[in-house]
Protein backbone atom coordinates (compact mmCIF):
# COMPACT_ATOMS: atom_id res chain seq x y z
CA UNK A 1 0.00 0.00 0.00
CA UNK A 2 1.30 3.44 -0.92
CA UNK A 3 1.07 6.22 1.60
CA UNK A 4 -0.39 9.18 -0.19
CA UNK A 5 -0.93 12.37 1.74
CA UNK A 6 -4.59 13.05 1.13
CA UNK A 7 -6.43 15.88 2.91
CA UNK A 8 -8.49 13.29 4.79
CA UNK A 9 -5.35 11.73 6.24
CA UNK A 10 -4.00 15.08 7.35
CA UNK A 11 -7.28 15.93 9.09
CA UNK A 12 -7.29 12.59 10.93
CA UNK A 13 -3.68 13.12 11.94
CA UNK A 14 -4.44 16.59 13.30
CA UNK A 15 -7.51 15.30 15.17
CA UNK A 16 -5.42 12.48 16.70
CA UNK A 17 -2.78 14.93 17.86
CA UNK A 18 -5.32 17.36 19.34
CA UNK A 19 -7.01 14.54 21.27
CA UNK A 20 -3.64 13.25 22.48
CA UNK A 21 -2.71 16.71 23.75
CA UNK A 22 -6.11 17.13 25.41
CA UNK A 23 -5.70 13.76 27.12
CA UNK A 24 -2.37 14.53 28.71
CA UNK A 25 -2.92 18.25 29.37
CA UNK A 26 -4.24 17.70 32.92
CA UNK A 27 -1.18 15.59 33.73
CA UNK A 28 1.23 18.08 32.18
CA UNK A 29 -0.57 20.89 33.98
CA UNK A 30 -0.20 19.12 37.34
CA UNK A 31 3.48 18.60 36.61
CA UNK A 32 3.91 22.28 35.64
CA UNK A 33 2.14 23.48 38.79
CA UNK A 34 4.32 21.23 40.94
CA UNK A 35 7.35 23.03 39.48
CA UNK A 36 6.04 26.53 40.26
CA UNK A 37 7.06 28.77 43.14
CA UNK A 38 4.44 28.97 45.87
CA UNK A 39 2.27 32.07 45.76
CA UNK A 40 2.67 32.70 42.02
CA UNK A 41 0.13 35.03 40.44
CA UNK A 42 -1.35 33.60 37.26
CA UNK A 43 -3.05 36.04 34.90
CA UNK A 44 -3.45 33.84 31.84
CA UNK A 45 -3.54 30.12 31.24
CA UNK A 46 -0.26 29.82 29.41
CA UNK A 47 1.61 31.23 32.39
CA UNK A 48 0.94 27.95 34.21
CA UNK A 49 3.32 26.27 31.84
CA UNK A 50 5.92 29.01 31.56
CA UNK A 51 9.12 29.28 33.63
CA UNK A 52 10.46 30.06 36.22
CA UNK A 53 10.56 26.51 37.53
CA UNK A 54 11.77 25.10 40.83
CA UNK A 55 12.25 21.59 42.15
CA UNK A 56 12.06 22.72 45.77
CA UNK A 57 8.42 21.74 46.27
CA UNK A 58 9.36 18.08 46.26
CA UNK A 59 11.76 18.19 49.22
CA UNK A 60 9.33 20.64 50.86
CA UNK A 61 6.41 18.24 50.92
CA UNK A 62 8.69 15.44 52.05
CA UNK A 63 9.76 17.55 55.01
CA UNK A 64 6.60 19.52 55.73
CA UNK A 65 3.75 17.01 55.36
CA UNK A 66 2.91 13.38 56.05
CA UNK A 67 3.47 12.51 52.40
CA UNK A 68 6.65 10.46 53.08
CA UNK A 69 4.71 8.12 55.43
CA UNK A 70 1.95 7.69 52.88
CA UNK A 71 4.52 7.16 50.15
CA UNK A 72 6.21 4.49 52.23
CA UNK A 73 2.89 2.76 52.99
CA UNK A 74 1.86 2.85 49.33
CA UNK A 75 5.17 1.44 48.15
CA UNK A 76 5.44 -1.15 50.92
CA UNK A 77 1.90 -2.44 50.36
CA UNK A 78 2.23 -2.43 46.57
CA UNK A 79 5.49 -4.40 46.64
CA UNK A 80 4.18 -6.92 49.19
CA UNK A 81 0.97 -7.23 47.24
CA UNK A 82 2.89 -8.04 44.06
CA UNK A 83 5.06 -10.65 45.80
CA UNK A 84 2.20 -12.37 47.61
CA UNK A 85 -0.14 -12.28 44.61
CA UNK A 86 2.50 -13.85 42.40
CA UNK A 87 3.47 -16.53 44.90
CA UNK A 88 -0.05 -17.54 45.94
CA UNK A 89 -1.59 -17.42 42.48
CA UNK A 90 1.23 -19.22 40.71
CA UNK A 91 1.29 -22.01 43.30
CA UNK A 92 -2.45 -22.57 43.07
CA UNK A 93 -2.40 -22.25 39.29
CA UNK A 94 0.35 -24.90 39.08
CA UNK A 95 -1.73 -27.35 41.12
CA UNK A 96 -4.83 -26.78 38.98
CA UNK A 97 -3.08 -26.74 35.62
CA UNK A 98 -0.42 -29.41 36.03
CA UNK A 99 -1.15 -31.79 38.93
CA UNK A 100 -3.65 -34.60 38.63
CA UNK A 101 -5.83 -35.00 41.70
CA UNK A 102 -9.43 -35.68 42.61
CA UNK A 103 -11.41 -32.48 43.02
CA UNK A 104 -9.30 -30.47 40.64
CA UNK A 105 -12.34 -29.56 38.55
CA UNK A 106 -14.37 -28.66 41.63
CA UNK A 107 -11.63 -26.39 42.94
CA UNK A 108 -11.43 -24.67 39.56
CA UNK A 109 -15.18 -24.00 39.66
CA UNK A 110 -14.83 -22.69 43.21
CA UNK A 111 -12.18 -20.22 42.05
CA UNK A 112 -14.25 -19.20 39.03
CA UNK A 113 -17.04 -18.08 41.38
CA UNK A 114 -14.82 -15.25 42.55
CA UNK A 115 -15.13 -13.57 39.15
CA UNK A 116 -18.78 -12.95 39.96
CA UNK A 117 -18.07 -11.32 43.32
CA UNK A 118 -17.77 -7.55 42.97
CA UNK A 119 -15.50 -6.36 45.77
CA UNK A 120 -17.40 -3.09 46.12
CA UNK A 121 -20.66 -4.86 46.91
CA UNK A 122 -19.14 -6.92 49.71
CA UNK A 123 -17.17 -4.10 51.30
CA UNK A 124 -19.37 -3.90 54.41
CA UNK A 125 -19.18 -7.61 55.34
CA UNK A 126 -15.48 -7.56 54.39
CA UNK A 127 -15.00 -4.81 56.95
CA UNK A 128 -16.84 -6.90 59.56
CA UNK A 129 -14.70 -9.95 58.68
CA UNK A 130 -11.41 -8.05 58.88
CA UNK A 131 -12.55 -6.34 62.06
CA UNK A 132 -13.35 -9.77 63.53
CA UNK A 133 -9.78 -10.83 62.76
CA UNK A 134 -8.53 -7.70 64.52
CA UNK A 135 -6.81 -6.53 61.36
CA UNK A 136 -8.43 -3.12 60.87
CA UNK A 137 -5.82 -0.35 60.75
CA UNK A 138 -3.00 -2.83 60.16
CA UNK A 139 -0.85 -3.67 57.14
CA UNK A 140 -2.28 -7.20 57.11
CA UNK A 141 -5.80 -5.86 56.89
CA UNK A 142 -4.87 -3.53 54.05
CA UNK A 143 -3.00 -6.24 52.16
CA UNK A 144 -4.80 -9.57 52.53
CA UNK A 145 -8.13 -8.90 50.77
CA UNK A 146 -6.30 -8.05 47.53
CA UNK A 147 -3.82 -10.88 47.14
CA UNK A 148 -5.94 -13.87 46.15
CA UNK A 149 -8.04 -12.75 43.20
CA UNK A 150 -9.73 -15.07 40.71
CA UNK A 151 -8.75 -13.07 37.66
CA UNK A 152 -5.00 -13.35 38.29
CA UNK A 153 -5.34 -17.03 39.09
CA UNK A 154 -7.26 -17.78 35.91
CA UNK A 155 -4.83 -15.85 33.74
CA UNK A 156 -2.02 -17.95 35.23
CA UNK A 157 -3.88 -21.25 34.89
CA UNK A 158 -4.48 -20.51 31.21
CA UNK A 159 -0.80 -19.73 30.73
CA UNK A 160 0.48 -22.78 32.67
CA UNK A 161 -1.77 -25.10 30.67
CA UNK A 162 0.16 -24.00 27.60
CA UNK A 163 3.46 -25.28 29.02
CA UNK A 164 4.10 -28.73 27.46
CA UNK A 165 3.65 -31.66 29.87
CA UNK A 166 6.75 -33.29 28.33
CA UNK A 167 8.98 -30.75 30.09
CA UNK A 168 7.48 -31.75 33.44
CA UNK A 169 7.69 -35.47 32.63
CA UNK A 170 11.35 -35.07 31.67
CA UNK A 171 12.09 -33.35 34.97
CA UNK A 172 10.22 -36.13 36.83
CA UNK A 173 12.35 -38.74 35.13
CA UNK A 174 15.45 -36.80 36.21
CA UNK A 175 14.15 -37.25 39.74
CA UNK A 176 12.88 -33.72 40.39
CA UNK A 177 10.02 -33.32 42.86
CA UNK A 178 7.01 -31.10 42.23
CA UNK A 179 8.41 -28.24 44.31
CA UNK A 180 11.60 -28.37 42.31
CA UNK A 181 9.65 -28.47 39.04
CA UNK A 182 7.54 -25.52 40.10
CA UNK A 183 10.52 -23.29 40.89
CA UNK A 184 12.97 -24.49 38.23
CA UNK A 185 10.76 -25.39 35.28
CA UNK A 186 7.42 -23.60 35.51
CA UNK A 187 8.35 -20.21 36.94
CA UNK A 188 11.33 -19.51 34.63
CA UNK A 189 9.09 -20.26 31.63
CA UNK A 190 6.36 -17.94 32.89
CA UNK A 191 8.17 -14.63 33.08
CA UNK A 192 5.77 -12.86 30.71
CA UNK A 193 2.64 -13.77 32.63
CA UNK A 194 4.30 -13.08 35.98
CA UNK A 195 5.35 -9.62 34.83
CA UNK A 196 1.86 -8.85 33.50
CA UNK A 197 0.06 -9.99 36.64
CA UNK A 198 2.71 -8.29 38.77
CA UNK A 199 2.24 -4.89 37.11
CA UNK A 200 -1.52 -5.07 37.47
CA UNK A 201 -1.23 -5.98 41.15
CA UNK A 202 1.17 -3.12 41.68
CA UNK A 203 -1.08 -0.56 39.98
CA UNK A 204 -4.17 -2.05 41.65
CA UNK A 205 -2.65 -1.75 45.10
CA UNK A 206 -1.04 1.64 44.41
CA UNK A 207 -4.32 3.17 43.22
CA UNK A 208 -6.72 1.31 45.52
CA UNK A 209 -9.11 3.71 47.19
CA UNK A 210 -12.27 2.25 48.73
CA UNK A 211 -10.73 -0.48 50.86
CA UNK A 212 -7.84 1.55 52.38
CA UNK A 213 -10.37 4.34 53.03
CA UNK A 214 -12.22 1.94 55.34
CA UNK A 215 -9.30 -0.04 56.68
CA UNK A 216 -6.75 2.69 57.44
CA UNK A 217 -7.99 4.52 60.51
CA UNK A 218 -4.92 6.36 61.75
CA UNK A 219 -3.07 8.88 59.59
CA UNK A 220 0.11 6.81 59.88
CA UNK A 221 -1.59 3.94 58.02
CA UNK A 222 -2.85 6.08 55.13
CA UNK A 223 -1.70 5.39 51.60
CA UNK A 224 -1.24 8.23 49.10
CA UNK A 225 -4.75 8.00 47.62
CA UNK A 226 -6.25 8.32 51.10
CA UNK A 227 -3.85 10.93 52.40
CA UNK A 228 -3.84 13.30 49.44
CA UNK A 229 -7.47 14.41 49.72
CA UNK A 230 -6.76 15.48 53.31
CA UNK A 231 -4.20 17.95 51.94
CA UNK A 232 -6.95 19.61 49.92
CA UNK A 233 -8.61 20.92 53.06
CA UNK A 234 -5.28 22.17 54.43
CA UNK A 235 -4.18 24.07 51.33
CA UNK A 236 -7.25 25.76 49.97
CA UNK A 237 -5.81 28.69 48.08
CA UNK A 238 -2.45 27.54 46.82
CA UNK A 239 -2.30 24.76 44.25
CA UNK A 240 1.42 24.16 44.41
CA UNK A 241 1.80 21.84 47.41
CA UNK A 242 -1.24 19.61 46.70
CA UNK A 243 -0.23 19.31 43.04
CA UNK A 244 3.25 18.24 44.07
CA UNK A 245 1.67 15.54 46.23
CA UNK A 246 -0.41 14.49 43.21
CA UNK A 247 2.71 14.12 41.17
CA UNK A 248 4.42 12.08 43.89
CA UNK A 249 1.42 9.75 43.76
CA UNK A 250 1.33 9.61 39.96
CA UNK A 251 4.93 9.58 38.77
CA UNK A 252 5.74 6.00 39.90
CA UNK A 253 2.63 4.70 38.12
CA UNK A 254 3.34 6.74 34.99
CA UNK A 255 6.98 5.63 34.86
CA UNK A 256 5.98 2.00 35.40
CA UNK A 257 3.47 2.36 32.60
CA UNK A 258 6.00 3.86 30.19
CA UNK A 259 8.47 1.04 30.93
CA UNK A 260 5.98 -1.82 30.77
CA UNK A 261 3.57 -0.45 28.17
CA UNK A 262 3.71 -3.67 26.13
CA UNK A 263 2.91 -5.95 29.06
CA UNK A 264 0.06 -3.69 30.17
CA UNK A 265 -1.51 -3.84 26.71
CA UNK A 266 -1.18 -7.64 26.78
CA UNK A 267 -2.74 -7.73 30.24
CA UNK A 268 -5.73 -5.69 29.13
CA UNK A 269 -6.28 -8.08 26.24
CA UNK A 270 -6.00 -11.07 28.60
CA UNK A 271 -8.42 -9.70 31.17
CA UNK A 272 -10.79 -8.77 28.35
CA UNK A 273 -10.82 -12.32 27.06
CA UNK A 274 -11.44 -13.83 30.47
CA UNK A 275 -13.28 -10.74 31.72
Amino acid sequence: MKTKTSPGKIILEVVSVIIAITFITPIIWALAVSLKYEGMQISNTFQWFAPPYTLNNYPDIIRGTSVPYWLFNSLFLAVLSVLMTLLLSSMAAFAIAKLKFKGSGAMYMYFLMGLMVPGEATIVPLFITVNGLNLIDSYGGMLFPGIAGSMNLIIMITFFKGIPDELIEAAHIDGAGNLNIFFNVILPLSKTVLVTVGIFSFLGSWNNYLWPLLCAMSEGMYTLPIGIPTLLSTYTTDYVIPMTANMVASLPAIILYLIFEKQIVQGVALSGIKG
Binding site: I27, L224, P225, I228
Partner: peptide, 22 residues
Protein backbone atom coordinates in the same frame (compact mmCIF):
# COMPACT_ATOMS: atom_id res chain seq x y z
CA UNK B 1 -1.28 8.20 20.38
CA UNK B 2 -1.67 4.91 22.19
CA UNK B 3 0.50 5.99 25.08
CA UNK B 4 -1.34 9.32 25.49
CA UNK B 5 -4.85 7.87 25.22
CA UNK B 6 -4.13 5.20 27.80
CA UNK B 7 -2.09 7.36 30.18
CA UNK B 8 -4.95 8.70 32.40
CA UNK B 9 -5.82 5.08 33.21
CA UNK B 10 -2.79 4.66 35.45
CA UNK B 11 -3.74 7.60 37.69
CA UNK B 12 -5.43 6.90 40.99
CA UNK B 13 -8.99 8.04 41.58
CA UNK B 14 -7.77 10.55 44.16
CA UNK B 15 -5.46 12.23 41.69
CA UNK B 16 -8.18 12.28 39.05
CA UNK B 17 -10.65 13.83 41.49
CA UNK B 18 -8.10 16.30 42.76
CA UNK B 19 -7.23 17.40 39.23
CA UNK B 20 -10.90 17.79 38.42
CA UNK B 21 -11.49 19.98 41.45
CA UNK B 22 -8.53 22.20 40.65
Amino acid sequence: YRVCYYMPNVLSVSVVSFLTIY
